[in-house]
């Protein structure tokens, strides 16, 4: 992979290039995306595009009949569900497969920010920050993250700017002045909605945890496979509290505007920010529980420090 340096020369880049592309409107989106694809093709690189359906339709129309079309794949990010924790493994899987085949790759991503809860927006922003960590040691690849400045609020745009080391501005790729290479600053989780239920649990108490979660889920319309999936996720998190979180934990359950929330708190400390976001291998010992939790829940919020312990909120939307 090559890119222009500050003096206009060309350099070979290693590792992950995470670039923000703030654009204004559909025409500018197309200009930037097609230029990026054209540059990729000049380097014989493949491109994966993960954007919402209207943007995908526009790009497909522009690429139809061109030589570049065969090098561009589209990822249906909507099919992955609402949980942004599923995006990193999806990118990893695609990149690893192409790398095995000997292809260099690029990606274009645009998140759908509309119709998101505050919790979802916060986790989407955290996902952007985690990308730098997830691919810090990956084979070289370049991800262009498109943000429509005419549709998004300043807080979303500012948060995006802080997470992208590079920026595409006025057709030029370069380092971003707004990027901050610091630990992620989470927003406060906020208080549970009233009324909430609380249960203290310890070893041998997983059935009680499930009973409490089932009562809340059933009361608010969860049934069948959706309820079973929440019960599995709750069992995994509670098991972790017993095994790694000081032998006990506290469960709170409530309903918020979008669905059922189950909050677990224990005294343990999760040190890996990418927990649950890397697909476990068959031979791997451990590391499957939180992977499963991320796959089964619509959103998972994890806050963990050595001093305050770990709080995990599982969100499942109700009809």
């Amino acid at each position: 992979m090559r890119t222009e340096d500050a003096s206009g020369g060309t350099t070979t880049e290693q590792g992950f290039r995470h670039e923000l592309y703030p654009y204004a409107g559909e025409d500018e989106f197309l200009t930037g995306a097609l230029s990026f694809i054209g540059d990729a093709r000049a380097e014989s690189e493949l491109v994966l595009v993960a954007v919402a359906e209207p943007r995908e339709r526009m790009l497909r129309a522009e690429l139809e009949g061109t030589e570049a079309a065969a090098a561009v794949s589209f990822l249906d990010a909507e099919a992955l569900g609402r949980n942004p924790a599923r995006l990193i493994p999806a990118w990893q899987e695609w990149i690893a497969k192409r790398a095995t085949e000997g292809h260099a790759v690029r990606g274009i991503s645009e998140t759908t920010w509309a119709d998101r809860t505050d919790a979802e927006t916060g986790e989407l922003q955290y996902h952007e920050w985690l990308l730098n960590l997830a691919f810090a040691l990956s084979p070289p690849w370049w991800l262009l993250c498109a943000y429509d400045t005419t549709a998004l609020g300043p807080l979303v745009l500012e948060a995006a700017a802080r997470c992208h080391p590079l920026v595409l501005c006025a057709g030029a790729h370069g380092p971003s002045d707004s990027f901050t290479d610091e630990p992620y600053a989470f927003a406060e989780l906020g208080s549970p909605c009233d009324p909430y239920q609380e249960l203290a649990f310890r070893s041998g108490g997983l059935a009680s945890v499930r009973a409490k979660v089932a009562a809340c889920g059933t009361e608010h319309g969860l049934a069948g496979s959706r309820l079973r999936e929440l019960l599995i996720a709750a069992t995994e998190v509670a098991s972790n509290s017993v095994k790694y979180g000081g032998g006990q934990g506290t469960l709170r359950t409530w309903k918020d505007a979008s669905g059922v929330v189950c909050e677990f708190h224990d005294s343990g400390h999760i040190e890996d920010p990418l927990i649950g976001r890397v697909r476990p291998t068959l031979d791997q010992v451990g590391g499957r529980g939180m992977w499963l939790v991320q796959q089964l829940c619509d959103l998972v919020q994890i806050r963990s420090t050595a001093t305050t312990g770990t709080t995990i909120r599982l969100h499942v939307r109700v009809p």
């Binding site: 496979s225 079973r228 476990p280 992977w291 499963l292």
Partner: peptide, 18 residues
């Protein structure tokens, strides 16, 4: 086995040829 058991069996990668 119900659909949930089958689903997470696949999510954990145990449904492969091995």
């Amino acid at each position: 086995a119900n659909a949930t058991v089958r689903r997470y069996w696949a999510l954990l990668g145990y449904d492969g040829p091995r």
